[in-house]
Design a protein around this nucleic acid. Structure first.
Length: 305
DNA sequence: GTTGAGCGTT
C-alpha cells in the first residue's frame, strides 16, 4: 500500500507529503510534479550525520530497507544548474512555469483587471506610459452598449516597462487594479509582503551572492544593495509565503551570518532597531526594479541560457 | 441608470 514520504526543497524547510506507489517506490514523475526540474533525492543519515542519495532506477526511487521512515528527504536538482532551456530533464510544466516569469525576455500583452467602469483607453494608456513606452492599450467593452467590462490589455515596448508594471500595485483613477500575465494564475502580490530586509550584511556578500542564495527558495525579482554600502540589503521574492518563511531567521551566506526580517517593520521592531536615524527602513529606498530584470544585462542569479 | 471576478468579436 502507498505510504507518504516527507520531502522538502531544503533541509530546514517545511516538508510536503508525497505518496509512494503500491510497491513502496517513489516515482520520479511524482517528485517532479511537486518539484519541477528535480532529478534526485537525498537524506541525512541520523546515525552518521552524513548525507545519502536515494537509489533511482528506471524512474523509481527505492528506499534503503524498503522503508522510508519518518526522515525528511531533500530534493536534488541537476548539479549543472545552468541547465539548457530544452533540457530533457525539465518537464513541460516546469518549462511553462519558467517561461511565464524568469525566462521571459520579450514583452507580451498584459491583462489589466479591475479598471474603473469609466476608464477610457486614452487615460489608461497615459497612466501606463509612466512605466515605459506603451504599444497597446485596450479596454474590453460590451459590443452592444459600449460599456467597459472593467478589464483590458496593455503591452509595453520593452521588458523594462513590463517588469516595472508587474512588480507593483496600481491605482487607476481611484481604484486598485491588477496587472498580470494573461492566463497565469499567478497574481503579483503586494511588494511589501515579498520584500526581505537582510541585515548584518558585510561587503563580502555581493548582490549576486544574495540573488544566488535566495534563488534556492524562490524566484528572486529584485536585489538592492545601497551604495555606498550600509550593512543591509533588500531582496524581493515572487511569493509572499516563501518570503514569510525566511523572515526572522539567520542565514549563512558565504560564511556570513545575516539576519532576514520583513522589509516593512512592525511598529515594535521600529522601536527595537531602526528608530535612531529617523525614518524606517522601508522608506530608505524606492520600490521598483533595480537589477536582474530580464531586459538588459541579465543580473546574477542561477543559470540563464 | 445597477456590478467587481475574470482572460481578448480584430
Amino acid at each position: 500500500m502507498a505510504q507518504y514520504i516527507q520531502i522538502a526543497e531544503e533541509e530546514n524547510e517545511e516538508p510536503i507529503e508525497v505518496p509512494t506507489e503500491d510497491d513502496g517506490t517513489l516515482l520520479l514523475s511524482t517528485l517532479c510534479a511537486q518539484f519541477p526540474g528535480s532529478s534526485g533525492l537525498k537524506y541525512r543519515n541520523p546515525e552518521t550525520g552524513t548525507v545519502r542519495g536515494v537509489r533511482l532506477l528506471d524512474g523509481r526511487f527505492h528506499s534503503s530497507e524498503g522503508l522510508w521512515g519518518n526522515l525528511v528527504y531533500v530534493v536534488v536538482f541537476p548539479k549543472d544548474n545552468k541547465r539548457k532551456m530544452d533540457d530533457g530533464l525539465e518537464n513541460s510544466l516546469a518549462k511553462t512555469k519558467r517561461l511565464e516569469s524568469k525566462y521571459r525576455t520579450t514583452p507580451s500583452d498584459l491583462i489589466v483587471l479591475g479598471l474603473p467602469w469609466k476608464s477610457n483607453e486614452e487615460d489608461t494608456k497615459q497612466y501606463f506610459e509612466q512605466f515605459g513606452e506603451v504599444v497597446l492599450c485596450q479596454i474590453k467593452k460590451d459590443f452592444k452598449t459600449g460599456q467597459s467590462k472593467g478589464y483590458g490589455f496593455v503591452r509595453f515596448a520593452d521588458m523594462e516597462g513590463q517588469n516595472k508594471v508587474l512588480s507593483q500595485r496600481h491605482c487607476i483613477e481611484g481604484r486598485w487594479c491588477e496587472v498580470r500575465i494573461p492566463n497565469s494564475r499567478e497574481p503579483n502580490y503586494p511588494i511589501a509582503l515579498r520584500k526581505l530586509f537582510v541585515g548584518r550584511l558585510t561587503e563580502d556578500v555581493s548582490a549576486e551572492d544574495l540573488r544566488t542564495y535566495f534563488s534556492k527558495f524562490d524566484e528572486v525579482t529584485d536585489v538592492f544593495v545601497p551604495k555606498p554600502f550600509r550593512g543591509f540589503a533588500f531582496v524581493t521574492m515572487v511569493h509572499p509565503e516563501v518570503a514569510a518563511k525566511l523572515i526572522d531567521e539567520d542565514h549563512i551566506i558565504k560564511g556570513i551570518s545575516v539576519h532576514v526580517s520583513s522589509a516593512e517593520p512592525k511598529q515594535k521592531d521600529k522601536e527595537r532597531f531602526g528608530g535612531g536615524g529617523g525614518r524606517g527602513r522601508f522608506d530608505d529606498h524606492r520600490g521598483g526594479w533595480h537589477d536582474g530584470h530580464q531586459g538588459g544585462g541579465m543580473g546574477g542569479g542561477q543559470g540563464q541560457n
